[in-house]
Design a protein around this nucleic acid. Structure first.
Length: 559
RNA sequence: UGGGGCAUAGUAUAACGGUAGUACUAUGGACUCUGGAUCCAUCAGUCUAGGUUCGAAUCCUAGUGCCCCAGCCA
């Protein structure tokens, strides 16, 4: 485990892979797969699995297949298939083989026949309720089905007729004959096939029986010559069954390894809940920017790199854990800081009139596109005597540590001039409607020739030049770290303020051509990106990806 | 009370019998034409009790706590 004299720290799965490569267990071969069921959109938890499976394949010169676990026609749909492929690609991965469990329906059927002939599987004609009753409980053994010793010929005949569609759903199932007294409930004669009279999105009405996960998955892995079959912890109990099928069939045998799934606080991650949020309109679709789905994060402005980096940071173990959402946010900020174009926009505008600026005059000033990356160049930003600044950047009676604009105080307008507030205009309610200020022409570009300093730099947009945009601010979808944790309905914890829509906000005119897929930093505010669905030329819509860290906000909230 | 698994700062994650380290968070400071970024510092941890050993997060024993499993879902 030493490379270039430096110790590498491998996660437990990579450690196993390296050991297997050394011992020659799989002939030095590494083959993984990412096996989603096309019954929903991929989320950040899937990203962990994707990064793990594709990552390991890449690191060890192996292969990684994308395989749909499409064994339940009642739940699956091509819409999901397309979304899954788009999301995996967008994350930056490409699969070696693209397969479906449904590609293997015939092979699976043939293998089932083999097990029946060997007396290792039988057709059970008990009802679902009766099977449950016979299964026993966690602490009591189950009872054998009266059909358990049906002759092989009869099993074969029944199984064939199940396939042909002769029976209604629930009439029969095919079960593995293992051990009804096993402490592991998965081994109490698990169902291998059930009758489903519904067309499959790929195989149509060719089949009337469909294999269960436990049977289909291990055989699919075997067919694809997977070496390391990585899955989440809840399948640990299923491993003996995974092994049993492959051993009984005497076929190629991958190794199943389980790791803990990703949990994020202030979010829900189960497909059931995500589907419910979408279906019942709590959010606007699977790609709503508040959703922890890959498509939602993409629309929100997250980059593939930031998600991959996040997945690296969280690691891979068998410990149940809840990752702090702030780590995800840190990952985007870290990435966007390096790549986002800096621009100026004002979300909560306050009008400023510069009383000593030439009437009706304007000029263009140079602004840096990204101080972290000089190669991104500079741009011209129009300036005039009529500006918008952020309302939060002015206080008439500032507290001690407030460094921004206030009466008599001088601040710098970013890339422009020093500005001093000389007067405050209010309406009949006492609300501030406008600031009357003066500027120092000698400070053009932002530096004073006499060397005097200001405590703050604020952003601005020239009012006559500004274009207007809609800005959508997102906050966490839930108000508590673990929604629904105390047995309450997680929907009780939905954050009513998770979306704030701001209309007609002034932004600098250079943004007129902003296209989705480009990340901007609105200086001093946060990272924003045009909404891929709703933003149009002339009707811009920006999504806030994440705020900038704001130490004044903290200071402000101190008691 | 059947079976399977997991316990290291607030949250994650390293250390594989030899100085408990890293990241995020929080706090304080330096710097700054973003109160951003960057840099520095601080707070803070081996589930418990025994044992083995010169030495234990690591090995042994006994406890404790938490998670998963009784779909014809995956």
């Amino acid at each position: 485990m030493e490379e270039n004299g430096e110790k590498r720290s491998l996660d437990f799965i990579r450690t196993i892979v390296e050991e297997d490569n050394e011992s020659g267990k799989f002939g030095g071969r590494v083959a993984t797969r990412f096996p989603p069921e096309p019954n929903g959109y991929l989320h950040i938890g899937h990203a962990k699995s994707i990064c793990l499976n594709f990552g390991i394949a890449g690191e060890y010169g192996g292969t990684c297949n994308l395989r749909y676990d499409d064994t339940n026609p009642a739940k699956e749909d091509t819409e999901y298939v397309e979304a899954i492929e788009r999301d995996v690609r967008w994350l930056g991965f490409d699969w070696d083989g693209l397969y479906h469990a449904s590609d293997y329906f015939q092979a699976l059927y043939d293998h089932a026949v083999t097990l029946i002939k060997a007396g290792k599987a039988y057709v059970d004609s008990l009802s679902a309720d009766e099977i449950r009753e016979h299964r026993g409980t966690l602490s009591e053994p189950g009872k054998n089905s009266p059909w358990r010793d049906r002759p092989a010929q009869e099993n074969l005949d029944l199984f064939r007729r199940m396939k042909e569609g002769e029976f209604p759903e629930g009439a029969h199932v095919l079960r593995a004959k293992i051990d009804m007294a096993s402490g592991n409930i998965n081994m109490r004669d698990p169902v291998m096939y059930r009758i489903i009279q519904e067309p499959h999105y790929r195989t149509g009405d060719e089949w009337h029986i469909y294999p269960m996960y436990d049977y289909a998955h291990c055989v699919s892995d075997s067919i694809e010559k997977i070496t390391h079959s990585l899955c989440t912890l809840e399948f640990e109990d299923h491993r003996p069954l995974y092994d049993w099928f492959l051993d009984e069939l005497a076929v190629y045998h991958p190794q199943q390894i389980e790791f803990s799934r990703l949990n994020l606080n202030y979010a829900v991650m189960s497909k059931r809940r995500l589907l419910e949020l979408v279906r019942d309109g709590y959010v606007n679709g699977w790609d709503d920017p508040r959703m922890p789905t890959i498509s939602g994060l993409r629309r929100r402005g997250y980059t593939p790199e930031s998600i991959r980096n996040f997945c690296t940071r969280i690691g891979v173990t068998k410990q149940e854990s809840v990752i702090d959402i702030s780590l995800l946010e840190h990952s985007v900020r870290d990435d966007l800081n390096k790549r986002a174009l800096r621009v100026m926009a004002v979300l909560n505008p306050l009008k400023v009139t510069i009383t000593n600026y030439p009437e009706g005059g304007s000029e263009e000033l140079d602004a840096v596109n990204n101080p972290e990356d000089p190669s991104m160049g500079t741009r011209k930003v129009p300036f005039s005597g009529q500006l918008y600044i952020e309302r939060d950047d002015f206080m008439e009676n500032p507290p001690k540590k407030f460094f921004r604009l206030s009466p008599g105080v001088e601040v710098r307008l970013r890339y422009a001039y020093f500005l001093r507030c000389e007067g405050v205009v209010k309406d009949e309610n006492g609300e501030i409607t406008e600031l009357l200020c003066t500027y120092d022409p000698a400070t053009r570009g932002g530096d004073a020739p006499d060397g005097r300093k200001v405590k703050a730099t604020i952003h601005w947009v020239s009012a006559p030049h500004a274009i207007k945009a809609e800005v959508r601010l997102y906050d966490r979808l839930f108000t508590v770290p673990e929604p629904g944790a105390d047995g309450e309905d997680y929907k009780e914890h939905l954050n009513p303020d998770s979306l704030t829509v701001l209309k007609d906000r002034p932004v600098e005119p250079g943004l007129a051509d902003a296209e989705p897929g480009v990340n901007y930093q609105f200086e001093r505010l946060g990272y924003f990106t045009p909404d891929a669905r709703d933003s149009k030329k002339g009707a811009l819509v920006f999504n806030r990806t994440v705020t900038l860290k704001d130490s004044w906000a903290k200071e402000k909230n101190k008691p």
